[in-house]
Design a protein around this nucleic acid. Structure first.
Length: 570
RNA sequence: CGGGGCGUAGCGCAGCCUGGUAGCGCACCUGCCUUGGGCGCAGGGGGUCCGCGGUUCAAAUCCGCGCGCCCCGACCA
């Protein structure tokens, strides 16, 4: 294509609203324009790039035997009421009524629709397994859309669903996806990691996330470089660091002391001259409407996700000040586990075996010393704390690393959640009717593009991997006023096309600087520059990523790009 | 849902405090010139100053209400 005919509205300056690099560059390079908060138009360049990503996804999904479909984005409420998710999705679901006043929603995901199709048609285990997928818009009314295409309200997702007769079959479907996802992200040129994940509102047992390390991300993952353990922070387990001071020995009895105005762990630590690791942190939580006291070591943070699964609750929140006073008789800052009754008490494992610690006395401005779990109060021990820098790997003990990441893919074993609630059953070999076991697997298409930009950019713009760049090569005559340069450029461009390269001819009547800047900004992986040395039959080949420049004979330029591209693809 | 910031030409911003002709850079159009990293010169077009209401002889500017967007936190299949 000829650049002069295309709509590629590049900007010299960064739009003020863009904070993260991928957002800035996608706007500046003319890929996208914002329509509203978290809603973007994909212009020509973005569309080309996204289609290449989709194509890679399709090829790899097809390769594991998945069948592509396209389901509606508009769903009747009844479907979501059946699965029970109409009630739990809350404000994140876009809801609307049709002219008859019937409730509908825009699909946030498609378990319900897929299950509805399957239950209408599947009768026998002989029809299983099935792998179905689509690439479709998803709608989520995010409380805070942000970071360009990283958190938006309308986005493309490849979602697939597996239907199997038993857990062993689900394992196979899950593993197929695991491997296909690896190939997809690798072909897209992403440096990714796979981590154990929490399965959240989707329900289900096993789950992995595919993450790209980037400060623009929103998820933290814990990684052990020594044994390879890696997990989302919501789920990561760790060995706590050793307490900074040894516990006092002996069978001491709790003893109240006055702590005027000392509300925080740090205050009490300073006041008692004992480190935070000797303090007991007491958090009053409300889990599905019931009060629960959660205990942690003073320097640890509660993981609400772990807490929710430990107490088996679907909704948890910190208690309000009135609730704390009602249940424990004191304000936050003076709460503790001794003498508590009527509340369930759960404690983090890091407190197990500790002795004679400091805790709140459930009397304002008073604390207790010599509090020993199991003796001075009873508690259920669970892993409740968030893994932190300085913790050891639970598997091998080496120090854990925490990294910020962008989630580009997620695979789930759903189990029987939807087949049971929605009645998807088949006859097994014994003639008994059994529910089908399901899995669900997602990839964020735009996130692949954003993550690639986050991972591969420099001061001049994007340096996209050739596999997902909107064009592979741009042919740039330095001086378009020179007929010889123009002719040579056109010829090289035609040769590129003939070799099957996605080529672009920068035929604009612009100064060379403008053309170079634009090509760099847009991130075209290769540029063939036709300039002064044309007289000697030489043109330049510049690789965007790394800015490597080589001189090649005119006749070989296109082929040189072609062979470099195939090198990169392997 | 809590906290903060912003809204003036396509983009980036000044002007607002202290009310009185709406401005700068880039982009755009015309002509000349130039052609290896966002040239140069000359001329030109483009504004509901987010909206509504109020104060005032007079509002981009002061006051009130609303809307939108961004950031931090909460939340997040």
């Amino acid at each position: 294509m000829h650049w002069s005919k295309l709509f590629i509205p590049t900007l010299r300056e960064n739009p003020a609203e863009a904070e993260v690099v991928s957002h800035q560059l996608l706007l500046r390079a003319g890929y996208i324009r914002q329509l509203s908060a978290g809603i973007y138009s994909y212009l020509f360049l973005a569309q080309r790039s996204l289609r290449k990503i989709e194509q890679i996804v399709r090829e790899e999904m097809d390769a594991i035997g998945a069948q592509e479909m396209l389901l509606p984005a508009l769903h009747p409420a009844e479907l979501w009421q059946e699965s029970g998710r109409w009630g739990v999705m809350g404000d994140n679901m876009f809801r609307l009524k049709d002219r008859w006043g019937r409730d509908h929603c825009l699909g946030m995901t498609h378990e319900e629709v897929m299950t509805a199709i399957a239950r209408g048609e599947m009768r026998s285990y002989k029809q299983l397994p099935q792998l179905w997928y689509q690439i479709q818009n998803k709608f989520r009314d995010e409380p805070r859309p942000k970071s360009g295409l990283l958190r938006v309200r309308q986005f493309l997702m490849k979602d697939s669903y597996s239907f199997d007769i038993d857990a062993a079959g689900l394992d196979v479907s899950y593993q197929k996806h695991h491997r296909a996802y690896g190939r997809i992200f690798q072909r897209c040129g992403l440096d990714y990691i796979v981590v154990e994940a929490h399965s959240g509102a989707m329900g289900g047992s096993q789950s992995h996330e595919f993450m790209v390390v980037s400060d623009a991300g929103e998820d933290f993952v814990a990684i052990c470089k020594s044994c390879g353990y890696s997990a989302n922070l919501e789920k990561a387990v760790s060995r706590p660091s050793a307490p900074q001071a040894a516990d006092p020995v002996g069978n001491l009895t709790p003893e109240e002391f006055h702590t005027p105005g000392r509300k925080t762990i740090a205050d009490v630590a300073a006041f008692t001259n004992l480190p935070e690791t000797s303090q007991m942190k007491s958090l009053v939580m409300v889990a599905d409407g019931k009060g629960v006291l959660a205990l942690l070591r003073g320097d640890h943070q509660l993981s609400e996700t772990k807490f929710a699964s430990a107490v088996g609750a679907s909704e948890v929140r910190p208690a309000h000040p009135e609730e704390m006073r009602k249940w424990l008789g004191a304000d936050a800052g003076s709460l503790g586990p001794v003498g508590v009754n009527g509340l369930r008490v759960v404690a983090d494992c890091a407190l197990e075996g500790r002795r004679n610690m400091i805790a709140g006395a459930n009397r304002d401005d008073h604390h207790l010393r010599n509090v020993t779990p199991g003796e001075d109060f009873q508690a259920e021990f669970h892993d409740l704390r968030q893994a932190a820098v300085g913790d050891g790997c639970a598997t091998c003990g080496a120090p854990l690393d925490l990294r910020k990441t962008v989630e580009v893919g997620h695979i789930f074993k759903l189990g029987y959640k939807y087949s049971e609630s929605m009645g998807l059953r088949v006859l097994n070999a014994e003639g008994a009717e059994v529910p089908v076991i399901m899995g669900s697997y997602g990839i964020g298409i735009e996130r692949i593009l954003s993550a690639a930009v986050e991972q591969r950019h420099d001061a001049d713009g994007m340096a996209l991997p050739a596999a997902i760049a909107p064009f592979v090569v741009v042919v740039t005559p330095v001086n378009s006023g020179e007929p010889a340069q123009r002719r040579a450029a056109e010829e090289i461009y035609q040769t590129c096309l003939a070799l099957g390269l996605d080529a672009l001819l920068d035929d604009r009547d612009e100064r060379p600087g403008v053309k170079f800047k634009d090509a760099d900004l847009v991130g075209i992986p290769f540029r063939i520059t036709v300039g002064k040395k044309l007289a000697q039959g030489i043109v330049e080949l510049v690789e965007r990523h790394g800015k490597k420049l080589t001189e090649v004979p005119v006749a070989e330029a296109a082929a040189a790009v072609k062979s470099r591209v195939s090198e990169l693809a392997t």
